[in-house]
């Protein structure tokens, strides 16, 4: 099955979230947060948080510039979790109101952009 290789072994539980949440680019992750529904956020956070520490520990064994695709997707999931956690842990019920202002911000550089040879 094609899906079996989407994520590294041990993290299959996050496979259903890859399509929606494995997002490359800081600003794209931010925009995904703003576009999400409370139910979507709670579902993703609930699935990703219990695996966060194991996922990062696994990924720390790989070179950021030469990550296999399954690891790359898992990293992107974790980076999106960083954004979604703020909606869940901090803003809570206020997130829809907060999102109105948040949408008017642009992330022009996140640290992954420094992987680019142009920088």
């Amino acid at each position: 099955m094609a899906n079996s290789a989407l994520l590294p072994a041990g993290f299959e539980a996050l496979t259903p979230y890859v399509e929606a949440w494995a997002i490359h680019g800081g600003d794209a992750r931010k925009r995904r947060r703003i576009a999400s529904t409370p139910e979507e956020r709670a579902d993703f956070y609930g699935a990703a948080l219990p695996l966060m520490k194991d996922a990062l520990a696994h990924l720390d064994g790989f070179d950021l510039q030469a990550m296999p695709d399954p690891e790359r997707r898992l990293l992107d999931l974790m980076l999106t979790l960083a954004h979604i956690s703020l909606a869940i842990e901090k803003q809570g019920d206020n997130e829809p109101i907060h999102a109105v202002n948040h949408a008017l911000f642009t992330i022009t550089r996140s640290t992954e952009d420094w992987d680019s040879p142009d920088l």
């Binding site: 800081g26 992750r29 990062l56 520990a57 990924l59 720390d60 790989f62 950021l64 990293l75 974790m78 980076l79 960083a82 954004h83 996140s110 640290t111 992954e112």
Partner: peptide
């Protein structure tokens, strides 16, 4: 990856 996550 951990450092990238923490900075993000």
């Amino acid at each position: 990856a951990s450092l990238r996550f923490a900075r993000e």
